[in-house]
Design a protein around this nucleic acid. Structure first.
Length: 584
DNA sequence: GCCGCCCGCGCCCTCTGCTGGCTACAG
DNA sequence: ACTGTAGCCAGCAGAGGGCGCGGGCGGC
């Protein structure tokens, strides 16, 4: 194999590759059947490329239960995506080229392939059989495949794009299905193209085949959720639907309509239709001269170049920030200056600047957790939390204390560590209930909870609206409620806390009658009976009453209440006598 | 076809709070 | 010496803020 350098402009994808790898000398180009073909022979470089692709495009779930082998540095540096070279294509372990690689090279509108005599072991990888997915790198076919979906008759050369043995090995059929393959794979890796997940019209041939593909993928051992935020509905371009429907509505009533076979888009205008169909391709004619990245529109390219040059035309008048687009500036001003939050939650007072934030917030109400961990049962409400969680599996600790070099999984943990261990004169927190001083707020909370029975949320009194954060004051307060004497006798001054009041009332009436009788008896004292004897009888009667749990005061006041003034005076004398007698 | 607005996704960050293991210390 | 307890500490998850950037689409 003789290495011969070719003009990189010919190889759009190779340019990307060079950008990533840097070491251009390790790429080898040669002629094969009058076609330009590229191969990579450097194992180190090859591994870098492969690792990069695994991390960003394929995601860890493909590597079932394997620890992610990328280092953080590699991960961070992988901002760009290469969906081209090289191809790993294994149909199964026996038949195919488990220890070999296919290498695809794009030459403008043609694609060539070459088998490279390289072994996986060279890359230091120990791959499990289930990752040998036959179509993983067929993403390289995108431009051709997208065209292919429009019909083989339009692009008959596509059927000849790959040598037959390659097609056989990959069980791949060119033409329409080639696009479907791309579609399914893009779904698989969470980088969906601008096509619906499953075609709505299930009766169309395309939809049928695609849906079968989707089913097949769903049934396969390859989870579609996963690491590196590659999963996800989030990335699926579903946002098209509403606007498409608007256009669809506009188009209604037209006699001649152009309906997109790949989505719901319908229009009567042919140019609109053609414009729309471009959205289903990844044709990016506007290339950045600095990084070779392609864009569909010149505006996008211009904004991209602004990113390179640092030119930010939209400057904030309230601070030093500047932005590429006016929309970004407006959003910044809402966040930092005007604090305008047009999106309000209907379930709580939360409001925010962006719809995506509201969407995320709503999940905290609904409990929805669409991002599933492929290693455990954890599921998160947003991609970042899942990614952060994955560190617990990978053992990655990206944050290092600059003083003691201790490493941490989260930046906030490191920050706390530095404050608590390496910062002098850190003020401690004083417990409001005792003299204890505690370093951390959360520990003070624990302290309050354990030692002072403090409940953060507050406990409501069961009898009134009072709120207590401590158990004991609540108990005391509720006891007061229970001791409260709510029932008052209608006939005397008797009050009680129980409903037994009614029983008392009846007894009270009977006793009143007795007292009346006593009074009557006193007034109509028997002939010859001395006053002392009369008093003695009264006292006996009183004692009887007392034994029936009627107090003197109760009797007296009840009696007084019903007596006339003369009788009252008489009764008071009688009561006084009784009291005196009791004193004796 | 270009431009700008708007939208949505993704990424990274901070703040917050809970948990459980560790450890010092008093009884 | 042993044990229970309370503070220290790192790990980890929930929630939200801020911004970069690409894409859709209407207007010109």
């Amino acid at each position: 194999m003789q290495g011969s350098r070719q003009n990189p402009e010919v190889f759009t994808k190779i340019k990307d590759l060079e950008t990533i790898n840097g070491d251009k000398g390790s790429n080898v180009f040669w002629r094969h059947d009058d076609k330009d073909v590229m191969g990579m022979v450097s194992t180190v470089e090859r591994r870098q490329t492969f690792s990069y692709e695994v991390n960003t495009a394929l995601s860890a779930p493909l590597f079932k239960r394997q620890e992610p082998f990328l280092t953080p540095a590699e991960e961070n540096s992988s901002r760009k995506r290469i969906l081209s070279l090289p191809v790993v294509s294994f149909e199964d372990e026996e038949e195919a080229h488990l220890s070999e690689h296919y290498c695809l090279a794009l030459r403008q509108d043609r694609m060539d392939f070459q088998l490279l005599g390289m072994e996986l072991q060279h890359f230091g990888m120990n791959l499990e059989p289930d990752i040998h997915h036959s179509h993983l790198r067929m993403l390289d076919l995108l431009p051709q495949a997208a065209e292919a979906q429009q019909g083989e008759e339009d692009h008959p050369e596509l059927t000849n794009l790959f040598p037959q043995d390659f097609q056989d090995a990959a069980e791949m059929h060119l033409g329409e299905e080639a696009y479907e393959l791309h579609e399914v794979e893009m779904e698989l890796i969470g980088n969906a193209p601008a096509v619906p997940d499953v075609l709505e019209n299930e009766n169309s041939p395309t939809a049928r085949k695609t849906n079968q593909r989707v089913d097949a993928v769903a049934k396969s051992s390859l989870p579609v959720h996963g690491y590196g935020e590659a999963s996800s509905e989030g990335r699926r371009r579903k946002k098209k639907a509403p606007r498409m429907r608007r256009n669809q509505m506009k188009a209604q009533g037209q006699s001649t309509t152009h309906q997109c076979r790949l989505c719901e888009f319908t229009t009567a205008n042919l140019s609109d239709f053609n414009c729309h169909m471009k959205s289903h391709t990844i044709e990016r004619p506007h290339k950045c001269h600095l990084c070779s990245k392609g864009f569909r529109t010149i505006t996008l390219l211009r904004n991209h170049i602004y990113g390179h040059t640092g030119f930010r035309p939209h400057k904030c008048k309230d601070c030093d920030m500047a932005f590429i687009t006016r929309g970004e500036l407006m959003r910044h001003q809402r966040y930092k200056h005007t604090h305008e939050k047009p999106f309000k939650c209907s379930m709580c007072p939360y409001s925010c600047v962006e719809t995506s934030k509201m969407k995320r917030h709503i999940r905290s109400h609904t409990g929805e957790r669409p991002y599933l961990c492929c290693f455990c049962s954890y599921a998160s409400r947003d991609t970042y939390k899942l990614k952060r969680h994955m560190r617990t599996h990978s053992g990655e600790k990206p944050y290092e204390c600059y003083i003691c070099l201790a490493r941490f999984t989260q930046s906030s943990t490191m920050k706390t560590h530095i404050v608590q261990k390496h910062t002098e004169n850190v003020p401690k927190l004083q417990c409001p209930k005792c003299n204890a001083t505690i370093a951390r707020k959360s520990d003070l909370r624990v302290h309050l909870r354990k030692l002072h029975s403090y409940v953060d949320a507050g406990m409501k009194c069961r009898y009134c609206d009072a709120i207590f954060h401590e158990r004991y004051p609540l108990i005391q307060h509720q006891r007061d409620h229970r001791d409260e004497k709510k029932f008052r006798c209608d006939h005397c001054s008797y009050i009680c806390k129980q409903n037994s009041h009614h029983e008392h009332s009846e007894k009270c009436r009977q006793k009143q009658r007795k007292v009346k009788a006593l009074e009557t008896g006193r007034k109509g004292r028997k002939k010859g009976e001395t006053e002392k004897e009369a008093s003695s009888q009264l006292k006996d009667n009183f004692c009887t009453m007392e034994s029936e749990q009627l107090t003197f005061g109760t009797v007296a006041s009840a009696e007084l209440a019903e007596m006339g003034s003369e009788d009252k005076q008489s009764a008071e004398v009688t009561c006084e006598m009784i009291l005196n007698m009791m004193d004796k």
